[in-house]
Write a protein that binds this DNA or RNA. Structure first.
Lengths: 188, 188
DNA sequence: GTCGTAAAGCTAATGGCATTAGCTTTACGA
DNA sequence: TCGTAAAGCTAATGCCATTAGCTTTACGAC
């Protein structure tokens, strides 16, 4: 019987596939092993624990998010760049909701250095996009926090089915971006 | 040996206590039963399943959130009411982070009628606070969505430890509220 | 080509958890 | 006083993660 030829990256990739196939299914070693055609304990040759696997999956998710933002923002600036970044995040989250949710730091779980680095890259990209004529440097941290919170909150509520009304959600999101961008003038 | 004298409400209340005692511990029937001084299967006399218990806990959380908003908003209007509502939500979430997190609809899980009703009440309170001179009625839904997303996103990021920098988080939150309120002028 | 070895895989066992079935006992009203 | 429904129990099942320790494959050194 030939060998499965797994590797840490392959295990993580398989997990991401499972998440794409069924975004609401919990991440489980049993499911990954079955998908890989391997017995469950064999996974421990590639991954230290379920938590470590979750962390690695989150790294993939955050990295993809950052890549999407970097692509979307290229060549734009000001309000256009801000909108592009916001839309890119939402688009990525909608295309891969399971991965997006799995990328959220489980409160109380400490993140790996790799995950922290990926998160910092994403935040740095946002920081570049949030600058605006007249924004005080001292308010940049606030602006990034506000942008993250608004976009993240919207995407999360949407993914959780939190918007009951049939009104156009795409339009609401664009207005969120406009409201926040305009409101940044407040930060003087 | 005397009886524990449980009831559905008592089980839910015990679960909320556990969540307050350790916000990051997962909700588990084993923990609840141990706290109640009862064998695990006995809980099934009061609760249909773990999922139902989670739902009931979420009802408590959302109701408390709505109560906090109602209290905070009483007698205020306009920007002051908006700020009070936002601050009340964040304060409640910080005082009971486990309960707040447990109140978020698990994506893919369908909510009970009771939970939906509690959520609608909370949203209705927000709708009352979001009105502003010159806000088109047609934009009210957008405004509520934006406010929910911004506040919820901020609180969630904060609870997850998402704000790495030491900068004053209280101040950032107040600025978030100001930015959103000012930005509402955008909605015409 | 042969062979040694490290990695990749396996089976078996353990312990936590939710859930179900079916029994016993308590409390309380007739 | 006693019958009954609810509250509790033990036992059993099945899923999951994790660990220990064994077997086998692939691959480089000779």
């Amino acid at each position: 019987m030939p060998r499965a030829g797994l590797s840490r990256d392959a295990v993580v990739a398989l997990t991401v596939e499972l998440l794409d196939a069924d975004p609401h299914a919990p991440i489980t070693l049993a499911a990954v092993a079955s998908r890989a055609g391997v017995a469950v304990p064999s996974l421990y040759k590639h991954v230290r624990s379920l938590d470590e696997l979750r962390d690695a999956v989150a790294v993939v998710g955050v990295t993809r998010l950052a890549d999407a933002v970097a692509d979307a923002v290229a060549g734009a600036s000001g309000r256009a760049a801000f909108r592009a970044a916001g839309r890119a995040i939402r688009a990525e989250a909608r295309a891969h909701p399971g991965l997006y949710l799995a990328s959220q730091p489980a409160p109380g779980r400490e993140a790996s250095a790799e995950l922290l680095a990926a998160g910092e890259r994403a935040v740095a990209l946002l920081a570049g996009v949030v600058r605006r004529e007249g924004l005080l440097a001292a308010r940049e941290v606030d602006a990034v926090r506000i942008a993250r919170a608004a976009v993240h909150g919207f995407v999360l509520l949407e993914a959780a089915g939190g918007f009951g009304l049939p009104d156009d959600v795409d339009a609401s999101f664009d207005r969120l971006l406009d409201v926040v961008w305009a409101g940044f003038a407040e930060l003087g």
